[in-house]
């Protein structure tokens, strides 16, 4: 076990149960690096997870307090929890299904309310723990186990959705961007408000096999690498490219949700005390 894992995780639950070559474990390490660079302690952070590979493989690995929500509901739970425990940082690690599909309404409204949580959406472009069906982030045309003729729907980027809804920090990276990811996760966690970090990573087991024709982790990683740059090794343009980096930074520009409620209480109670 590496030093960061020893410092922050539960030895009995590490390494993760993810498939060989899956990036879920590596990305968790990057989150730990950000937490460590911020000098946060275990008791400063509440770790919440979704359901699916991303949620289940990371659930209960964090050495502090943990919750795993039902599919898509981590943000709804976190909203209530933040109101009760405004002193804690809440870090949510969820899948694209959790965030962009079944829990999309909670995502939008948590962004709108500016709930003080950092959402790490680890996007493997499909429902992978159920065997690799397409999700709202699967690129159009790609083959998955439920789009054998190619994904027929249009996909969306959840970053666009949360920016429109009012998120105060939004960034996107991919599994080949270690340093960038650590950097934006730190910025995200420094925002006292709703932060969204969207990280694309390959599911070697399902997406690799159906969309890319290989379970070799190197094939998947190369595909991610190419689409991060927008070019293949031989200089040809890829079919599309992701726009990575900080997409929106209005950190600490408007009050966090639980603070809005506390301020409201203070105003009401002051008026009561003044007898009006």
């Amino acid at each position: 076990m590496n030093k960061l894992a020893a410092k922050y995780l539960r030895p009995e639950l590490v390494p993760t149960k993810a498939c060989q070559g899956c990036a879920i474990g590596a990305i968790e390490n990057w989150l730990l690096q950000a937490i460590d660079e911020m000098e946060l302690k275990q008791e400063d952070v509440i770790f919440g997870a979704g359901i699916g590979c991303v949620g289940r493989q990371t659930f209960a690995t964090w050495g502090g307090d943990n919750f795993g929500a039902t599919h898509g509901r981590a943000l709804a739970v976190a909203t209530g929890l933040k109101v009760a425990r405004p002193d804690k940082k809440i870090l949510l690690v969820v899948g694209d299904g959790d965030a962009a599909s079944i829990g999309a309404s909670h995502l939008i409204h948590a962004a709108r309310r500016n709930v003080g949580v950092t959402v790490i959406c680890e996007d493997n472009m499909g429902y992978e723990s159920t065997g690799g069906q397409f999700s709202p982030t699967t690129p159009a045309g790609y083959v998955t186990n439920s789009s054998p003729y190619g994904m027929a729907e249009q996909s969306f980027d959840p970053c666009d959705v949360v920016i429109a809804a009012g998120a105060t920090f939004v960034a996107e990276t991919t599994a080949v961007q270690w340093r960038q990811t650590v950097k934006v996760v730190k910025l995200a966690m420094q925002n006292d408000g709703f932060s969204f970090v969207h990280i694309r990573f390959p599911c070697v087991q399902n997406f690799g096999a159906s969309a890319l024709g290989s379970r070799d982790p190197l094939v998947s990683m190369e595909w991610i690498y190419d689409h991060t740059k927008g070019k293949t090794d031989d200089g040809a343009e890829t079919d599309f490219a992701w726009e990575t980096g900080i997409k929106h930074d209005a950190s600490n520009s408007r009050p966090e949700y639980s603070k809005v409620l506390r301020d409201l209480n203070a105003r009401v109670r002051a008026d009561m005390a003044a007898g009006s």
Binding site: T79, G80, L81, K82, V83, A84, S105, H109, L261, N265
Partner: peptide
């Protein structure tokens, strides 16, 4: 609720409402 320093959360739906309650209760309320 604001009068007694409690919190009224208007949820986006009932599914969210009860999950928010569960989260708040886990937080000690």
């Amino acid at each position: 609720l604001p009068q007694i320093d409690g919190y009224y959360l208007q949820a986006e739906d009932e599914l969210a409402g009860m999950h928010m309650c569960a989260g708040a209760s886990l937080g000690g309320q």
